[in-house]
Nucleic acid binder design. Structure first.
Lengths: 384, 384
DNA sequence: ATCGTTCTCGGGAACGATTGCGTAAAAAAA
DNA sequence: TTTTTTTACGCAATCGTTCCCGAGAACGAT
């Protein structure tokens, strides 16, 4: 009597749903009524009411049976499970969210999706979130603090259970984030972080990244190494410039302030990079090498040099942060600082889920520091 | 009497919420109670009940006042609006979803996020969806049909209002999609599409893309042009190979079957590409040019050639589909077929929202065909 | 004075699921 | 046999919101 609808194949105990279910390619979704004939009708899902009605029991019994409660007899359980399977019942996540006051979704704010580094991070986040039954809502700030605030507003209004964020370049006032944090929203920061909010964070050893890159150039014999960096506000900027400065010092070179150029919008505005490169190249003593401290800056810098007819590495060396998997295919093959982006994403979501699912308040926060890799290419040569 | 909580700044009429709201950077989120002291407490949102209680009216009145119903007096409306503003009330989207039986979220299935083409498409989708109040749930198939089915299962269980999908390379049986479609789920396909499902789709003129690329090589004087393509199952494969064949014919060259290699996993498995290139290069008459018909194939092909010490374009020419914005920085600067990915994403989401928000059944389906661009680089030379 | 309108508003049932509490019937203990 | 305990289930509230009814009050028409 409970087969008055399309017979389905698999229904899972809601507790273990989507865990290695093996389903045939057909009729997986028959939890929905067939109503798609001529009229355009919203397909309606099977609910516990349908099961209850079909079996002549109460919804409480169905609910408890599905959750394998001890107060339901084995026979009834079997009946309910069987019927749920037949109707291909699937629990309504929205109703559950309302009841449990959690959305099982997390928000991710990055400045740009179409950027290798961030898309790889998102890849890592998504892979784990998916397995844990969370969905990921992605928002882009486009390096604008205004947009970042709107993103957070939006995500907050969609009542996400947690947040993973890399700050926009414009963000020096973080009160909008602080507000959310104060209200108890679990937050994990990555890449561009701030100490002002006490929470977990995931970064690479930025200092080490530029230190090694600078050291590499110094060992090659370069004497006038310039740096093109992001906005001074960003954590990554000072850290990366720190590694650059320390390496210079370690090798007995004096730090030259005019060799450091900042791009406030980190290359989102291309003319920024052009200006920076132009200013460097028109110095009385132009640099013989450039370190670019982010993906967009690295490619933008190479693009500018190329367009100006400046040969790399013959006229100038170029080393930079880059997570594109085609760095070796570039002209020249770039020597790059590569970040373990996928792992960063995984670390971030793991820390976030830990925060979200923690029963008791978390007071000890972790700053997970991963190690970047210097991938040697041909964008610097031996100068002697 | 209604200011017993943190005074907020802005509350919107739910009907026009998130429409060009200008808010100061602080206290935007004070719709939530301050409970984040020592104990870890979930922050609780302000509901219409709170407003009703504060004002001594019923929730119905509050609800209607907020929705600007005609049956509420202007005075009461003003009171309610004022109070909502004070408490910084924000409607609970989950409760709304439950009531209205729609989640205001759409699912996007692509094979890989960290791929320029797809991340650009997602960028386009996201930009519009966000403005229209929808959130985007992204799932990756990794070119696996099994994973694709699980993705759809997941998205379906999260009750998305619509779906945008580019099929995985393994997908020749589309009954899992067909099922969802039959049940009335609005679907828009892009890139890798199928005629078996009658719905909107967004593609580029693949034929034209390869035709022009092939023609370009033919005009340069190449005589033995090979093609490396995706799985035969995919729509893009036959279309792109079609353009290739027709161009050959138009220029009086005979089609040589051994010059066409398929990579079933489209380059997700790198050895596939290596094998394809190796087989081509060990022919008695190896090709003098290669056309790669997808992003991953293009970069994979170049990587293989480079590793084998085969110079492009000196030893062989290479032209391929590529949406990376650093094609011009590659070695050599690649001549590529560039797809308007952002526009494709925008078109897809627009068509989907049209489907979702249509009152009456949609029977006329649109196949929107955008035009790819051949971007000339230096990966082919004049051979005479 | 009585009736029909119009204007406002409240009560309460949904939406789908969980869960504390109450309670019949059955089983166990007295 | 009576009492107590256990078993197995139903009722109803709850989450936040909308919306169908119903209903009181004011007002004009008869």
């Amino acid at each position: 009597m409970c087969g008055f609808r399309m017979p389905g194949i698999v229904a899972d105990n809601p507790g273990v749903i989507r865990k290695n279910i093996q389903l045939p390619a057909s009729s997986i979704f028959s939890s929905y009524l067939y109503l798609h004939n001529d009229a355009y009708m919203k397909f309606e899902a099977v609910t516990i009411k349908d099961i209850a009605k079909a079996l002549g029991v109460s919804t409480s019994t169905v609910s408890r049976a599905l959750r394998d409660s001890y107060e339901i007899s084995p026979e009834t359980k079997e009946l309910v499970l069987e019927c749920a399977r037949k109707l291909n019942y699937m629990p309504n996540p929205i109703a559950l969210s309302l009841k449990e006051r959690r959305s099982r979704s997390i928000g991710v704010v990055v400045c740009e999706i179409a950027n290798s580094f961030f898309s790889q991070v998102i890849n890592g986040i998504e892979s784990i979130a998916y397995d844990r039954g969370y969905n990921v809502i992605i928002a882009q700030s486009n390096e604008s603090v205004e947009r970042e605030i709107m993103d957070l507003h939006y995500l907050s209004s969609r009542s996400v259970d947690g947040l993973i964020i890399s700050l926009s370049t414009e963000t020096n006032d973080i009160s909008h984030l602080q507000d959310l944090h104060n209200k108890g929203l679990p937050i994990v920061m990555f890449d561009r972080v701030t100490d002002e909010i006490k929470t977990h964070s995931v970064v690479v050893d930025n200092f080490k990244g530029t230190y090694e890159a600078t050291e590499y150039l110094l060992q090659k014999g370069y004497k006038r190494i310039a740096a093109i960096a992001n906005s001074e506000f960003l954590s990554i900027t000072s850290e990366r410039l720190g590694g650059y400065k320390d390496a210079l010092q370690a090798y007995g070179q004096k730090f030259n302030k005019s060799y450091v150029k900042h791009c406030f919008y980190g290359g989102m505005v291309f003319s920024e990079i052009e200006d920076a490169v132009n200013k460097l190249m028109t110095l009385k003593q132009p640099p013989d090498a450039i370190i670019a401290t982010s993906d967009k800056l690295t490619t933008g810098c190479l693009k500018t040099l190329m367009r100006r007819g400046i040969k790399v590495p013959d006229d100038i060396a170029l080393v930079g942060f880059l997570n594109s998997d085609i760095a070796e295919l570039m002209n020249p093959a770039l020597t790059v600082v590569h970040q373990p982006a996928l792992e960063m994403g995984k670390a971030a979501i793991e820390l976030l889920l830990q925060l979200i699912e923690s029963k008791r308040p978390v007071t000890q926060f972790e700053k997970r520091v991963l190690t970047p890799t210097l991938v040697i290419g041909k964008s610097a040569m031996d100068v002697n």
